[in-house]
């Protein structure tokens, strides 16, 4: 599905947008460092704090440490947060404040190159951060299966889904005030997506709502891969995330065009 959506627009010139973001990132080393430390903070706080309190947890008839239970979900959360910062905040700035994209469009690049370039960038960023997360996770002893390596490609899919949705959402944001709305959506997704505890703790009606959350699907998928517990349900979960990504990207490309070249 991705391969059907992506090549239908954009060209190799989209790499220039990637290059541009890299240039900006190099000057913002603090952001780079914070992105690296974020997973470490997550894992340490859980490992040292909650792990003692909660002890082991039963997943699929097998007791595992709470840290090992929660770490894959944290990875999914970290992918979401990274996508929000990059796809929403930074893109909004270039789209509405500095009008940097307008300048790019007076060069040989076109709108689809810009949208695609941002996707490449989001993927590369996710690849680096999820890898560093998985390394930290392993070093801290929060892995229980070698299958955890599959969390890496899965993290890219998760990141793509959130980045695409983020790009699409950004095009509807008019002012900095609207970012409160972003938090209003992001926070409940973060808190209620069963990343900290199994979905079975919710009453059934709420459970159905939670199941629609992309973060829940992402976290559950990651947990299954991380624990090496495979099931056919992973396929619709993956398909759901890919579909959200494709829808987000399609909307984003259309809205970018409307805003940038009316």
């Amino acid at each position: 599905m991705l391969t059907r959506v992506l090549p239908s627009f954009g060209s190799r010139r989209s790499w220039r947008v990637f290059e541009r973001n890299f240039m900006v990132y190099r000057t913002q080393w603090l952001m780079l460092v914070s992105g690296f430390f974020e997973p470490l903070f997550y894992l340490l706080s859980i490992g040292i704090g909650l792990n003692r309190l909660v002890g082991t947890i039963d997943v699929g008839g097998r007791p595992i440490s709470y840290a090992a239970f929660v770490a894959p979900g944290m990875l999914a959360t970290s992918m979401m947060n990274g996508a929000v910062i990059d796809s929403i905040f930074n893109t909004f700035f270039r789209l509405r404040i500095s009008h940097a994209y307008d300048a790019v469009l007076s060069t040989p690049l076109d709108v689809t190159d810009v949208a695609l370039g941002e996707v490449w960038w989001a993927l590369a960023r996710a690849a680096v951060y999820s890898a560093s997360f998985l390394v930290c996770m392993t070093l801290l002893g929060d892995t229980v299966s070698a299958w955890v390596i599959l969390c890496w490609p899965a993290a890219l899919v998760v990141s793509l889904a959130f980045s695409s949705l983020g790009l699409a959402a950004t095009t509807y944001i008019r002012s900095w005030q609207d970012f409160d709305l972003v938090s209003l959506v992001q926070l409940p997704i973060f808190l209620f997506s069963a990343t900290f505890f199994p979905i079975s703790v919710y009453p059934r009606w709420l459970g159905a709502l939670v199941a629609a959350s992309p973060l829940y699907q992402a976290a559950t998928l990651m947990r299954g891969l991380g624990l090496g517990q495979f099931s056919w349900v992973m396929i619709p979960r993956l398909a759901y995330l890919v579909a959200l990504g494709a829808v987000g990207l399609t909307i984003a490309a259309r809205r970018f065009r409307r805003i940038l070249v009316p």
Partner: peptide, 10 residues
């Protein structure tokens, strides 16, 4: 362009 659109971050 009529309105400057430089890369303010660079």
């Amino acid at each position: 362009p009529q309105e400057d659109n430089l890369e303010l971050e660079l």
